[in-house]
Design a protein around this nucleic acid. Structure first.
Lengths: 347, 347
DNA sequence: ATAGCCATGTTAAACGTTTTCCCAACAACT
DNA sequence: AGTTGTTGGGAAAACGTTTAACATGGCTAT
């Protein structure tokens, strides 16, 4: 409510001086400084950011465009962005496209995704955001907008496919390598893989990383022990049967849901996971700590992804040029639970 | 980038007229209207919302303060708010306090919650939000701020405990009544309850609703069959043993996690849920559709809560006075899954 | 004494809008 | 012809800031 004008009247000093005090600028005696600050507190002063941003043309605000806020990983990423903003005195505004959740009553029902994204982008640019962090998998829609709208993007969670747009993603390959190392260290040599969809880069990179680790340990890679699923529970169940029949002692499922399918199968057949069979999933969803036995899995660096994305964006804004790297790969960590408890040394 | 000034130069008409066209105000010939709109499109015009908000003193923007964005229900509520905003041409900005998640590296580590909330509120008010929707359980912190900061709150997900702050919550009592009705309709008369914490209003209201339904069906309420837990899985396991020993044919757990504990116990003891015992949880977390057997549960009207809260807030803004109601109670729905599949008519 | 300098303040323009008030032109009445 | 009303449009102030440019009044060094 109170403005610098009122502070100026209250203290008998000009508004320019008040502004200087409020922005920690030099050229003000400590006396006036004190009286201005006192008046500001007394009047319950709060800067009008609209005025400030209008004048400066900068908002110190990042726009976040998320495809779906209710998808499990998005809030974790937003958390990381938020902390980075706090640390560097930035703000953010969050836009939620709600892709895949648009029902009949929704104003956006039936619209094209690219139009929705463009509208949201326009709105954010209208608020003078300094850059946009995009969380989603439609980077092909995003890419052309960077030039057209003269703004800056950072893509999170997907390859940007555009050399001018940095992306921040987790390292599938290294994660799979870690998984393999863990299983190998426990004595497993016949390891089945229930992979994700065949054309996915997640799948491919995880397979590559896994093979690298096998190679390092002189264990031959047997393609017969890799099944391609579609991220669904049923496929975990189905392929568990095949792989166990083929004699594997461990299974790496490319997500937790398929791993749960494996658990279903084993529980039904009396196979004891953690003892007869080692099992490890991917994603560290809530279910992996709730299922029985609890599931070892790969935890995604959600917070770091968000934090890094924000850092990259702010550096771009500061230096006004592309960052030195185009891709920021962040490491995952393995969460060990009951499903990888035992080794096979007893055999 | 382009401003109304440039449009005015481009079309040869004054900026006042341009503004009128852009805001659909009368007093402009359709000719000039067309030429202005054409120029706007050509120049890729986008209104500067900072300027607009500065001038009008209104931002058509709601502030959302969430205690923790990564808690499962918050994004669903934000979804509802977002859709309401779209429908009524509003915007929102989201603040995430991250209570309970502040580690050493966090700028807010060690600060008092009320200070953090106050700061976030100040920031939002600095952006001239028209009102604040608070999602969390610290309404006692919120209440004094409404007067002090001269703003408007709507509380979501908690009783506001202040007659001047409307709250939007789901109806625990009715939900429990529905649960009881369902179980009774399946023939159950000896129903155990694994309740939540003893002092919680959730617990109390659910017990009241449950008792009402029992009364309606002339079934006596046996307090011995109600155990008070603390929302944790272990208590589900523990009390399942007691209740089953006491001869119940159905259990109503006050959250899904405790229900999972019941499942643990039954799986271990060979009790078949859905046949030997009916089980129903509360919250409809992801786990309830993943566990085996799948769990019937009470789904919270997250979207509606958000949508209603936003509607209430906008009406307050529009009419500039308290809404007729102080409390908005929204109904839950029951999701039936395997754990309540059978009746006990066979007995 | 004069020039130069520093420390402290002030004036005023500008940011991009909205909005009130006014003006001109013209038509339609007495 | 004079009054009135209507319609399309413009001038200018205002919103609350920031900031460049300028003013003042010592002080120091010549």
């Amino acid at each position: 409510m109170a403005t610098i004008k009122e502070i100026s009247e209250c203290t008998g000093v000009s508004i320019a001086t008040v502004s200087k005090v409020l922005n920690d600028q030099p050229g003000v005696s400590s006396e006036t400084q004190k009286s201005v600050l006192a008046a500001a507190k007394k009047l319950n002063y709060r800067p009008n950011l609209n005025a400030r941003h209008l004048k400066t043309g900068m908002s110190r605000t990042l726009g976040i465009i998320a495809e779906d806020l209710t998808v499990f990983n998005t809030p974790g990423i937003v958390d990381g962005i938020g902390v980075c903003c706090e640390q560097r005195n930035y703000h953010y505004i969050l836009g939620n496209l709600r892709f895949n959740k648009l029902f009949g009553h929704d104003p956006n029902y039936g619209r094209r995704k690219s139009d929705m994204l463009t509208d949201m982008l326009d709105e954010m640019l209208s608020k003078q955001v300094d850059g946009i962090i995009y969380i989603g998998c439609h980077s092909h829609i995003v890419a052309p907008l960077q030039k057209q709208k003269e703004t800056r993007f950072v893509c999170v969670y997907c390859y940007s496919e555009d050399p001018d747009i940095p992306d921040v993603i987790y390292d599938d390959r290294e994660a799979a390598r870690k998984v393999a190392e863990l299983l190998i260290s426990k004595g497993h040599r016949e390891i089945g893989i229930i992979a994700g969809a065949k054309d996915s880069y997640h799948t491919n990179n995880r397979l590559l990383g896994f093979q690298e680790a096998l190679f390092d340990h002189n264990i031959p890679y047997n393609p017969r022990l890799t099944c391609y699923g579609a991220w669904e529970r049923d496929q975990g169940y189905e392929y568990a049967s095949d792989l166990i029949a083929a004699g594997v002692t461990a299974i790496f499922a490319h997500n937790d849901l398929m791993a749960i399918g494996v658990i279903d199968y084993c529980n039904q057949k009396g196979i004891e996971i953690g003892k007869d069979l080692a099992l490890i999933g991917f994603d560290d969803r809530e279910i992996s700590s709730v299922c029985r036995p609890t599931l070892s899995t790969v935890a995604l660096p959600l917070f770091d992804i968000g934090h890094t994305a924000a850092t990259v964006m702010m550096d771009i804004i500061k230096d006004n040029q592309k960052p030195e790297k185009h891709e920021f790969l962040l490491g995952c960590s393995i969460v060990e639970r009951e499903s990888t408890a035992g080794g096979i040394e007893g055999k």
